[in-house]
């Protein structure tokens, strides 16, 4: 019985010490992690809604969650640039998240992939940047296309799929088309 008490005490002590030290490390690193994520998000938003750096980006909520963003050229919400939203779809080995900017007519302005864990050398080429270029070549082909009807070439569309990574290409393309439909429906309702 004495042993049991002693063991319980030692285990509790270890648990307290370990979780205490983790709480400390967490309190040091957490602000940095959140700050980095926010900065990344902001950077992506400014990238897909070009011209919004000097203006303002407004978040549109539904049920407490952000559904999409509205970007304006002027800080007083004039000159709408378009809408931005995160589209996510199941790729080959991960849930791929893409930030998409569309103009009010539903044409894609720019896209940026936020998160993917696809196969290195295959699916990850969706973020590949060619020599002497600054934008991933695969993502650039979305610019100016009609967001609601985009398809990869294997499905009869215009988006050239990545060699050996059709699943990845299709997942991103379809997720963008799907989310655009949802978002444009919402914006139509609002405007009317």
């Amino acid at each position: 019985m004495k042993d049991v008490m002693r063991f319980a005490f030692i285990l509790t002590l270890t648990a307290a010490v370990t979780s205490g030290s983790l709480a400390y490390v967490n309190s040091v690193t957490r602000p940095r992690i959140t700050a980095r994520q926010n900065a990344e998000m902001k950077e992506a938003l400014h990238y897909v809604l070009q011209g919004s750096e000097k203006g303002i980006i407004e978040s549109v909520f539904q049920n407490g969650e952000i559904v999409f963003y509205k970007g304006y050229q002027k800080p007083d919400k004039r000159d709408l640039i378009g809408y931005a939203f995160v589209a996510s779809g199941q790729g080959y080995s991960s849930e791929i998240q893409t930030m998409v900017g569309v103009n009010p007519q539903g044409k894609i302005l720019r896209v940026r992939i936020l998160f993917q864990q696809e196969t290195p050398g295959l699916g990850t080429r969706c973020e590949e940047i060619r020599k002497n270029e600054s934008v991933p070549w695969w993502q650039r082909q979305f610019q100016g296309t009609d967001a609601q009807s985009i398809k990869v070439d294997k499905d009869g569309g215009a988006i050239e799929s990545i060699t050996g990574a059709t699943i990845t290409s299709r997942a991103i393309t379809e997720s963008i088309a799907l989310k655009t439909k949802i978002v444009l429906q919402k914006t139509d309702q609002k405007d009317n």
Binding site: T18, S21, L22, V25, N26, T29, R30, R32, I33, R36
Partner: peptide, 12 residues
């Protein structure tokens, strides 16, 4: 504990 420390530091 050490694994979580690595995890947090790497994320940051």
């Amino acid at each position: 504990t050490f694994v979580t420390i690595v995890d947090l530091v790497m994320a940051g």
